[in-house]
Simulated assay, not measured.
Amino acid sequence: MSDHLTVLIAGAGPMAAAYAAVLRDLHVPFAVLGRGEDSAARFEAEIGAPVLRGGLEGLPADAGRRFRAAIVATDIDQLAPVSAGLARAGIGRLLVEKPAGLDPTQIRATAACLAGLGCEAFVAYNRRFYASVRRARELIAEDGGVTSFHFEFTEIEARILAKPRSAEVLANFTLGNSSHVVDLAFHLGGEPEVSAGATAGGLHWHPSAAVFAGAGRTRAGALFTWRADWSSAGRWSLDVRTPRRRLLLEPLETLAVQEKGSFAVTPAALDDADDRRYKPGLLLQTRAFVSEAPEETALARLSAHCEALDRVFLPVFSPDGFESPV
């Protein structure tokens, strides 16, 4: 893939390293901008590419000319300020790790800032690019659409607390992490028209809720339900029904199919070599972003993501027990 300008990766952690591996194999030149010395040193040892230190203050003065695009792969609490800083420096196209900010207020403010600067921005929901999801989209189209779907976004508390995270990040963990499942569910199932939900309980690190449940209808008439219980057992999953079959993504990287009229559930054959070689979904997502390839249609625009905050995410994560027309 030819490219005469360099893509900037903002961040030097594991996610940045995953992007670097993909960009290298796509033959897209890149530079890396880091903030902490430890993460920069680890990145250089793993990837073998230099890291500019100093965060935004280390950004070259001619960044707008040197970098045609940037991938923002920082910690979640830095996504919004770094995105705004890169846009102010003149970089006109951004791919920002989900959910593009710490909370809805910050995400909306960042989107307004970028739009005012004429910066085109996307949110990196890489699960949209899984081989399992691509195959599910094909089968849904072949079958004439979705009739119903169910999704679960239970998180495993022990795994979450095993990593150092700020209280603010933990308190916003639904949007910060579980949004992957919710985004994917409505990406495949269709935009919601009406939804009703409720939450219960709470955890010391996530006091607003521990149990989530609800239901609704899409604009195309498909019914949907959701459930998550962070105080119990469970996992991420998506169960989609069409007029001809059931499509089960559990885990999301896999696809199992149950044909109408049969009890048998069989694994679907997937062209998932790229998902095995790289972080799943990342190759196609990155290629869509840097080359404006046909897969770009699956990229989530930041403007659409802001609209989805009220229409999609908040009715699931913070419904307050009332019906929410969306």
Results as ranks from 00 to 15, higher is better:
Pro207Ser: 12
Gln78Asn: 14
Gly281His: 03
Leu248Thr: 03
Ile156His: 15
Ala171Trp: 00
Leu299Ser: 04
Gly54Thr: 08
Val96Arg: 02
Phe317Cys: 02
Thr266Leu: 15
Leu8Arg: 03
Ser291Val: 07
Ala264Lys: 04
Arg159Pro: 15
Leu314Pro: 07
Leu5Asp: 08
Ala209Ile: 00
Arg35Ile: 07
Arg276Gln: 14
Glu168Asn: 11
Asp38Pro: 08
Leu188Met: 10
Val265Phe: 02
Arg53Asn: 09
Thr6Ile: 11
Asp3Gln: 15
Trp236Ala: 00
Pro267Lys: 10
Ser231Met: 11
Arg137Phe: 05
Thr105Ala: 11
Leu95Ala: 09
Thr74Phe: 06
Pro29Ser: 12
Gly216Ser: 03
Glu157Ile: 13
Gly13Ala: 15
Ile9Asn: 03
Tyr278Glu: 03
Ala70His: 05
Met1Lys: 13
Ser195Arg: 06
Ala196Leu: 13
Thr254Ser: 12
Asp229Trp: 08
Ser195Cys: 11
Leu184Ala: 06
Ala111Pro: 00
Glu307Val: 12
His4Cys: 10
Phe313Ile: 01
Ala45Cys: 07
Phe153Trp: 13
Gly90Tyr: 09
Asp183Ala: 10
Glu44Ser: 15
Phe129Lys: 11
Thr266Ser: 14
Ile156Met: 13
Ala167Val: 13
Leu23Phe: 02
Val51Asp: 06
Arg68Glu: 14
Arg159Phe: 15
Ile156Leu: 14
Gly101Trp: 04
Ala10Glu: 01
Glu253Ile: 11
Val194Pro: 05
Val7Ala: 09
Leu203Val: 03
Glu142Ile: 10
Gly36Cys: 06
Leu59Arg: 09
Gly189Pro: 04
His206Ile: 01
Ala31Gln: 10
Ile71Leu: 15
Glu292Pro: 01
Arg108Cys: 09
Glu259Tyr: 02
His206Asn: 03
Arg245Trp: 05
Asn172Pro: 09
Ala222Trp: 01
Val316Asp: 07
Pro315Glu: 00
Ala109Ser: 11
Gly54Asp: 11
Arg246Ala: 02
Ala21Cys: 13
